Simulated assay, not measured.
Amino acid sequence: MLINLAKLGKYDNGLFTFLPQSAPWILVVPAIERSEPGEFLRNNGIEKILEANGVQFDQQTLDDDFDEFMTFYEKIRRIPVDTQSMNTGHITEQIERNQIPSIDFEKIVENLIDSQKKKAVEMVKNKTLIHKIVFFFGKNDNLETLIQKTSKRVLANFLIINYIDLFTKSLLIDPDDVGKCDEMATDNLPEAGFSVIVKNHFDRENIQIVSDLVEEIKIVLKN
Score class of each variant (00 low, 15 high):
residue 65 D to W: 03
residue 134 V to T: 13
residue 150 T to Y: 02
residue 10 K to D: 05
residue 123 M to G: 07
residue 187 D to I: 12
residue 82 D to A: 11
residue 112 L to D: 03
residue 1 M to K: 04
residue 83 T to M: 06
residue 93 E to I: 02
residue 116 Q to M: 09
residue 162 N to A: 05
residue 130 I to W: 01
residue 219 I to A: 11
residue 6 A to L: 08
residue 130 I to L: 13
residue 21 Q to P: 00
residue 39 E to H: 13
residue 216 E to W: 01
residue 71 T to Q: 13
residue 57 F to H: 13
residue 72 F to C: 09
residue 67 D to C: 03
residue 125 K to R: 15
residue 87 N to F: 09
residue 87 N to M: 09
residue 209 I to N: 10
residue 43 N to R: 08
residue 165 D to V: 03
residue 218 K to S: 10
residue 190 P to V: 14
residue 120 A to I: 11
residue 74 E to R: 15
residue 196 V to D: 01
residue 111 N to L: 05
residue 37 P to T: 08
residue 128 T to G: 01
residue 162 N to G: 11
residue 171 L to P: 00
residue 114 D to I: 02
residue 212 D to N: 15
residue 74 E to K: 15
residue 16 F to H: 04
residue 104 D to H: 13
residue 25 W to Y: 14
residue 57 F to Q: 05
residue 46 I to H: 09
residue 122 E to I: 14
residue 149 K to G: 02
residue 194 F to M: 08
residue 72 F to Q: 08
residue 165 D to L: 05
residue 195 S to E: 09
residue 13 N to D: 07
residue 158 F to H: 05
residue 32 I to C: 00
residue 221 L to Y: 09
residue 14 G to S: 00
residue 128 T to P: 01
residue 86 M to G: 06
residue 125 K to I: 15
residue 148 Q to H: 03
residue 93 E to Q: 12
residue 143 L to A: 07
residue 167 F to L: 04
residue 149 K to E: 14
residue 47 E to I: 14
